[in-house]
Design a protein around this nucleic acid. Structure first.
Length: 590
RNA sequence: GCGCCCAUAGCUCAGCUGGAUAGAGUACCGCCCUCCGAAGGCGGGGGUCGCACGUUCGAAUCGUGUUGGGCGCGCCA
């Protein structure tokens, strides 16, 4: 048995090579040749089509159909080809032998989970950084889309032969964490009967009170302090009216740090651990896991921020103005220069981001992929600019933008506003529609397209729901195979002998669909578009359902029966593999 | 005002490295369970691919302009 389970012929690649040879024979050596093979839409156009003749017609000063004839004459023979035809303006249409399609069943059944994997990525090291939400509250449905997209993309890249590292960047250093710490402490003080008006621009959510309660239960009054100390240096009015300016909130934070001393770090650490744990747990239940949780604070602790800034300094890309330190990002096409160190000495988020990206590049990835919300697109030029300034190649950084998701319930927009604390969390969404529907709906759309998320549709256990449609196809195959009393291992060996029984148009189309799967995964990886896999699965499920309704599988003639069972078992395998890439389960029963 | 993204069937969207008659789901209408799961299938109507020019053998796809919508233009993250 010489065959390796994950090796199977790729017809597209195979024919491309043949056409390349033919082109060299027909065209002058210096002709620019781009071999393009497409799957045809109509059966009478064959299985694959090539437009090379039309491309070459002009430079060869011949009409396309004549060029096509020359190309066909020069085309080396292929054992997989039944016939070649010229059609239309000069398309060369290729017809596969039925046996070429039929033999694919054994590749699918023997490769199992590995079917669809390819060497496209050549083992290149790729980092995918996604979600990276501030650990200052629950993930909401916007993060959910980034999570679903990032996880699916990472899976698709891995299947296409990339060496993928999944990373979450933890913003544990910034002002937002201080605000959360302060918010929690204020709620804690309330539990100790110390009341000052809760700042409007602090975190309002119930989860803050929950954390305060936990601290109170564990440490009682240990962190209780007199309100006068807290409001020191703040206007008299703040005793009666809630703070709503950034300056006053910062003052409050500074006071809290002064009063609490080392205890501040405890509360800070407590809320961080709580939120991060909650986030990790939430994502795990969503089927999203990370290899690395990268701490922003560590960039400061390890001196990386200082080093990055010094590096820019030494290359003269920094200057002082108005007491702040600026990076000359306009040198690299940005709209304006950007502050890296504020007047008050604090580094900006951008500063640690420069250090983070420097670190990413020093880790030696062939490609670094950031998945951001589309509202951050204005941030791209400065980050790429910083990389260039550091002497790094910005082309290695790919930024995939994910547009917002808008929830619809009863045909109306569900209200969402982060600040007021009125937002739908990812957890609520999962509880309402389930993990599978949420994952599938999130990646059903192109990522750079706004997503209208129909909650009622996602919840409905009916034929309208595309998730169930695909899963149902899988369950149906399982059901048939469960009623068959044969040995599955035999089935895996048999189709080679019996596959010629599969010769109806529906069966040949299904076989071709299975053959298309590895190309589909490769395309999804190349285009950073997992939605391609979702569409493919719906089409495959559709063709299967149609086949199911037209053909009986458990027929008395054993060769026919086995051939058909091998076909639907292969379909099941591909459905399973594809759903897995999207983080959706493939149930045996529903 | 400047920059980025988007506009395709009533609705939600594929298709976009230029290719053959522009597709799917949904909604609407009509059929199919003595038969492996009807959460399924079959059939039908439904289009100026926002608009206008341009590039070419060929444009939903590329370019320019224009209209309409989203987002971004902080010493926030």
């Amino acid at each position: 048995m010489l065959m390796t389970s994950s090796v199977y012929p790729n017809f597209k690649t195979h024919f491309s090579e043949l056409f390349a040879q033919a082109a060299h024979a027909v065209a002058p050596p210096d002709t620019a040749i781009r071999i393009e093979l497409t799957r045809t839409k109509q059966a009478n156009h064959g299985d694959y089509s090539c437009n090379l003749a039309m491309q070459l017609a002009k430079s060869l000063h011949k009409n396309p159909r004549d060029v096509a004839n020359l190309l066909i004459e020069a085309l080396p023979p292929s054992p997989h080809l039944d016939k070649v035809e010229i059609a239309g303006a000069g398309f060369i249409n290729l017809f596969l032998k039925n046996s070429a399609k039929q033999q694919y069943l054994q590749y699918v059944l023997q490769s199992k989970e590995a079917y669809g994997h390819s060497q496209f990525g050549q083992g290149k090291k790729v980092q995918v950084e996604f979600v990276s939400a501030n650990p200052t509250g629950p993930l909401h449905v916007g993060h959910g889309r980034g999570a679903a997209f990032g996880a699916s993309l990472a899976n698709v890249l891995a299947a296409a032969g990339f060496n993928v590292l999944r990373e979450f960047y933890v913003n544990d250093a910034g002002r937002q964490m201080d605000i959360l710490t302060l918010s929690t402490w204020l709620r804690y003080l309330e539990l100790n009967d110390i009341h000052i008006p809760f700042p409007q621009n602090a975190y309002q959510g119930e989860y803050v009170k929950t954390m305060a309660q936990l601290i109170y239960e564990a440490h009682a009054q240990r962190y209780r302090h007199h309100p006068d100390l807290l409001l020191d240096d703040l206007p008299e009015s703040t005793r009666e009216t809630a703070i709503n300016t950034d300056e006053q909130l910062d003052k409050l934070i500074a006071n809290a740090k002064k009063i609490l001393g080392e205890d501040y770090a405890y509360i800070h650490n407590f809320v961080l651990t709580e939120q991060l744990g909650d986030c990790r747990n939430d994502l795990m239940e969503f089927g999203v896991e990370f290899d690395v949780w990268f701490s922003e604070q560590s960039l400061f602790n390890n001196g990386l921020v200082a080093r990055a800034i010094e590096l820019l300094q030494s290359k003269h890309y920094l200057y002082q103005q108005d007491g702040a330190t600026w990076f000359r990002s306009t040198d690299f096409g940005d709209e304006k220069d950007r502050v890296v160190q504020r007047e008050n000495g604090q580094f900006t988020y951008f500063a640690s981001d420069i250090a983070y990206h420097l670190n990413k590049f020093e880790r030696g990835f062939d490609q670094v992929i950031n998945i951001w919300g589309a509202d951050h697109h204005g941030y791209i030029p400065r980050v790429k600019g910083a990389l260039q300034a550091l002497g790094l190649d910005p082309a290695k950084l790919e930024i995939a933008l994910v547009q917002f998701a808008v929830l619809y319930r009863d045909g109306k927009k569900a209200p969402m506003s982060t600040r007021s604390g009125e937002f739908v969390t990812l957890r609520e969404l999962r509880n309402e529609v389930g993990k599978d529907a949420a994952r599938f709906f999130y990646v059903m759309r192109k990522s750079d397209q706004h997503l209208d998320f129909d909650l009622d549709l996602a919840k409905s256990q009916s034929n309208e729901n595309p998730v169930y449609y695909v899963q149902y196809a899988h369950a149906r195959v399982c059901s048939v195979l469960a009623q068959w009393d044969g040995n599955f291992d035999e089935l895996v060996q048999l189709p080679h002998a019996n596959a010629e029984e599969l010769s109806s148009p529906a069966e040949l189309a299904l076989l071709q669909k299975l053959i298309d799967y590895p190309d589909t995964v490769e395309m999804a990886a190349k285009e950073f578009s997992p939605h391609i896999v979702a569409f493919y699965l719906r089409e495959l499920a559709g063709e299967f359902h149609s086949y199911y309704n037209s053909t009986r599988f458990l027929v008395p003639e054993i060769p026919v029966q086995h051939a058909r069972l091998a076909l639907i078992a292969s379909i099941r395998q591909v459905l399973n593999n594809g759903l897995k890439l999207l983080g959706v389960s493939a149930p045996d029963k529903m």
